[in-house]
Simulated assay, not measured.
Amino acid sequence: MTTSGDRSGAGMPVPAPSFTHLARLSDDTGLFEHARHAIVRREHGYCTDDVARGLLVASREPEPSAQVLGLAECYLAFLTHAQDGRGAFHNRLGHDRRWTDQPGLGDWWGRALWGLGTAAARNPADWIRTEALVAFSRGAARRSAAPHAMAFAGLGAAEVLRRHPGHAVAGALLDDAAGAVGAADPDPRWPWPQQRLSYASAALAEVVIAAGHLRGNAALLADGLRMLTWLCEVQVRDGRLSVVPVGGWRRDGARPRHDQQPIEVAALADACATAATITGDPAWRIALGRAVGWFLGHNDLGMAMWDPATGGGYDGLTPHGPNFNQGAESTLALISTLQHARQRS
């Protein structure tokens, strides 16, 4: 990967990840999905999608506090309760502690496996690793028809394989996840395997990179790196990160810039961190720095996308400024990206 004109905000002071607002959004059941500014909106309940991401970031902490370990325990209990006997997951739980849906294999299944796989590989508590691996293995026997769900699940499988290289169920899932993403297009103007960039696109490139590396497939690894290189390049404007907005981009369509979502930035940071670790190429750390800079104000509007007073991440960047609500998804995206910032030194 090559870079030029880096203006990623590398000179900005980068705060340490804070779990203060995540704890504010959590109770003894799980993690509430929405907030009005920094105040939790309990009426919207909980979702597996966010709880899984919560388990992921809590398990990534190298020296977690008692508070963070407690959050991981809570989130793991939620996910094991959400999982049925065949490995599918409920997604939505009301504040009355009743599920509002049937178990399924959508994105929330994939993210649940990503969170469980990360906990099984990285959490410092032995019993959390053990229980998470049991739940992961049950869910990893299933398959989703959705490429994004498969990509998220495959990233969980990659985490398991890094700790347990002989885990056959994780290996098969990672292979199938890369296959679900599809082959990179040979056209350098649009090498993406799909006709549209939608949400968390970098996760698709990351799972191809991880599969190529962990399964010893050099061609697959090269494809994934080419996809990610292009994705980084098309999301830079005037030296700053300007990510695909919530409406997405089509191959031959217009490329609007708003509303930008923190999940896009976090997905890019995840993928660039993985590429940096695998390749050792310092250019990936420059790309990661742009993702960190986006939250700190090096974005299209020059406005910070987090609240230092609460530790919460803002829900989106609109043409008029930040959406100041501090829900779970955006706060988790902030924490995840700041965790990767530690690797830039």
Results as ranks from 00 to 15, higher is better:
217 N>D: 15
153 A>P: 00
66 A>I: 13
72 A>S: 04
202 A>M: 05
265 V>G: 08
92 R>F: 12
60 R>Q: 14
56 L>E: 15
232 C>L: 04
44 H>M: 13
41 R>V: 15
49 D>G: 12
288 L>E: 01
219 A>R: 12
163 R>I: 06
27 D>S: 06
121 A>C: 07
101 D>R: 04
186 P>T: 09
161 L>Q: 02
191 P>E: 11
204 L>I: 12
220 L>E: 00
216 G>I: 10
224 G>W: 03
76 L>Q: 00
172 A>Y: 04
109 W>R: 03
242 S>F: 04
68 V>A: 00
17 P>C: 05
186 P>N: 05
339 Q>H: 14
75 Y>F: 15
311 G>P: 02
110 G>C: 11
154 G>V: 04
277 T>D: 10
13 P>V: 14
63 E>A: 14
49 D>L: 11
52 A>T: 09
55 L>F: 13
257 R>P: 02
231 L>Y: 08
302 G>W: 08
280 G>T: 13
344 R>W: 12
13 P>R: 15
95 H>Q: 05
21 H>E: 02
261 Q>L: 11
268 L>S: 07
242 S>P: 01
268 L>F: 06
294 W>E: 00
124 P>K: 02
145 A>Q: 10
209 I>G: 00
322 P>R: 06
341 A>Y: 02
96 D>V: 10
293 G>V: 14
140 A>N: 00
20 T>K: 10
133 L>R: 09
33 E>H: 13
67 Q>I: 10
103 P>T: 13
83 Q>Y: 05
223 D>R: 08
